[in-house]
Nucleic acid binder design. Structure first.
Lengths: 226, 226
DNA sequence: GTACGTTGATAGTAATACTATCATAAATCA
DNA sequence: TGATTTATGATAGTATTACTATCAACGTAC
């Protein structure tokens, strides 16, 4: 299988971690540790010890641990968009495309051999647990200006365009798209940790149940027959 | 106007801040500072300086700043539920009740004279900016066991019951309730900081636009005519 | 073979999130 | 009134974090 690389916005790193062995080790181990410890308890010191490197070296790749998190989450959204393109290529009907997109978004992902350095499954868990932390910060406006959220915004506007294609008169395609995207991870988080907030928790396969919930939500909302 | 008090889960504080002058000052100033600085930059040291007290004294009320945040956000959800009860009292039709509830949830709140110590407007901004931080933590399961999220869960299940009343066959009342509750603050956050993620940002009054978006979302989703 | 770029080693700093101890003033109770 | 809790303040101290700075060593490229 061909090994691929995703282009990640250059403001997210100081030195491209995909360009060196150490960079790849930093990213791979960061995914492991954030998944395991949670973002708060994760530190560059722990990371440096695990890969037998130093804090100073890691700082040469990432300005701080928060930018590293945004880098990882952005990588995930970009990867999702790439997979969505693959999956929707041969679907002429926008309705089918939307369903396929939702399937992909709510999928419990396995290792993607096109990107051998990244553990997509662990990254998926990180997205579920930590993705909000990318933008729920005081500096959100500055970060946004610097283009750090383009990965997420790109995916969201793709979804919004698809919604508009199906129902051009629907007034809130972007709001619906962002709501569904957010809910897609939120409901899984609730299912695991605050089960009384979502029926998804009672299902044998929460991922499938999540898909059903969101599919109904989106199609009912933009349904023109009403 | 009668001055009221909300009962907040006792695990959220060490000593009830509503029981003393210092306690009230801590809460009032914390709201000001978190609103102004954001939760990350907010510290007990800054807070203690502002109210001419000491860190040690604040620690006698709250175990740490995170629990103080949960206390504030819980206060807000409980207050919302209290207001919702007022507003829905005389509405026999569940459809009218749901609309009134949504109006209340999406309202840009003003000072409530029944609670003179709390700046509801600032607290509303804190909820929009920081509410996720209450539960997006590694200790979420322990916190949940300790009952720290009952305020939010109570509001969510109220909404879910209302949804079920309108459409008893709808399969995801809690998931829809939590999605709408989350979206109600999220969309306002996006409108202000990441406007391309929501049409709500383009409206003259984002609060009204947010209401319209959510109202349509919820009623279309549980509509039985389809 | 030299120059440059990458990494490692080490040290240091300001701030944070606490914990502990003791003194003092005020409120409570007998 | 006097004794005793109780609440707060004052002060000090600690481990950890999130960096920044400097210099040495190593390998590669020209």
């Amino acid at each position: 299988m061909t090994v691929l690389q995703l282009r990640i916005h250059e403001n997210l790193y100081i030195k491209d971690p995909q360009s060196s062995t150490l960079g790849k080790k930093i990213v791979a181990e960061a995914i492991k540790q954030i998944d395991l410890l949670g973002f708060e308890a994760f530190t560059f010191r722990k990371l440096s010890l695990a890969i037998h490197s130093t804090e100073a070296s890691i700082y040469r790749y990432f300005e701080n641990k928060h930018r590293l998190l945004i880098y990882l989450i952005t990588w995930y959204w970009s990867w999702l968009e790439y997979r969505i393109q693959l999956v929707t290529q041969n679907l002429p009907e926008p309705t089918d495309r939307l369903k396929a997109v939702l399937k992909e978004i709510t999928n419990r992902h396995q290792q993607d051999d096109s990107f051998p350095d990244i553990d997509e499954n662990a990254l998926n868990r990180i997205v579920i647990a930590e993705s909000d932390k990318t933008y729920r910060i005081k500096q959100v406006d500055q970060y946004n200006e610097d283009g750090l959220f383009r990965g997420y915004k790109s995916l969201c506007s793709y979804l919004a365009r698809l919604i508009s294609e199906i129902n051009p008169s629907y007034k809130y395609p972007h709001a619906l798209a962002s709501t569904v995207l957010e809910a897609s991870t939120q409901q899984l988080f609730f299912a695991e940790h605050l089960p009384s907030l979502s029926e998804v928790s009672q299902s044998k396969d929460p991922y499938v149940s999540n898909y059903n919930f969101l599919q109904e939500l989106i199609f009912q909302t933009i349904d023109t027959s009403a």
